[in-house]
Design a protein around this nucleic acid. Structure first.
Ligand SMILES: [Zn+2]
Ligand SMILES: [Zn+2]
Ligand SMILES: [Zn+2]
Ligand SMILES: [Zn+2]
Lengths: 146, 146
DNA sequence: AATCAAGTTGAGAATGAGTCACGTTTCATG
DNA sequence: CATGAAACGTGACTCATTCTCAACTTGATT
């Protein structure tokens, strides 16, 4: 996948610029993330990785997720659980989330009107917007027939 | 304060309807919440209460916060920390939050256009909306002059 | 290719928010 | 004011995440 190579390059150059090391662990984790469904959590991913590479530790997975989030390859978000979720955020347009409380399904959406109003709200309040997160929690219609 | 009495009544009737007890602990905690700034967290509140009433336990504070959230006297929310925040939600209109990452200031806002679009997004995706949460993280202009 | 300083890792201990179990206390009703 | 269910306080526990630190890589330099 092209994006993967580009992400590796981005990681590599960030590390070089900051005198950090390009390790096989970091590469492996990035690779596995690209083969893994979005909106995953650290523990899930760690177990997945452990099944294929029995030498990567939980701490390294957590540390690498942090690193990749800082660089802008991942986005860390709260989807209403008591743990963080992550998804790729590399050359991808912004979106927010609609989450079914019944089955956990996550729908992504992006609404230009909502986005615009947010910028205006920041403006009005003398704030510079850094990021935002909109989560709508609901219930799929199919769960109605109880 | 009038709202406080009304909230006590709401609590009292909810408890009666469900064969639960109106305890002094529950009353005390509700009272302290009304004297406490909004968007507080459980631990903060617990310490505050402990300074005045040395017999109320942490577990009871947590249990009561849950109870009050279920009844609709409080709203439990995630303001971007690794702990929950709470605020009064009794006879108050819905709002969302604008949070300064520099100083932690929280601005409340409600935007009818955003709210309407959210309902439409749910509609379009065959979901029934239960609740939502929009957090905008930014930086107050006054921090710019670094 | 050998060296070496500094960054990184794995293992497991530590942390911190929140929950649970359980023996004791309190409330509401008769 | 006796009764029994509901709540309480304590402290142990859970679970995600972070920290510590000795051992191990990395990559720039000889
Ligand atoms: Zn958005
Ligand atoms: Zn997403
Ligand atoms: Zn809203
Ligand atoms: Zn608020």
């Amino acid at each position: 996948m092209l994006d993967f190579k580009a992400a590796v390059n981005k990681l590599r150059s960030y590390l070089k610029e900051n005198n950090l090391r390009f390790t096989t662990e970091r590469l492996t984790i990035l690779e596995e993330i690209f083969n893994y469904p979005s909106h995953f959590d650290a523990e899930q991913l760690f177990i997945h990785i452990r099944n294929k590479h029995d030498n990567i530790s939980r701490a390294t997975v957590y540390r690498t997720l942090d690193l990749l989030s800082q660089i802008g390859i991942l986005k860390k978000e709260n989807l209403g659980h008591n743990y963080a979720s992550y998804e790729l955020d590399f050359n991808l347009p912004h979106h927010d989330h609609l989450i079914c409380l019944e089955c956990g399904k996550v729908v992504e959406f992006a609404d230009p009107v909502i986005e615009k109003r947010q910028r205006e709200i920041c403006e009005k309040n003398g704030m510079e917007m850094i990021r935002h997160q909109l989560q709508i929690f609901g219930r799929c219609r199919e769960h109605d027939k109880k």
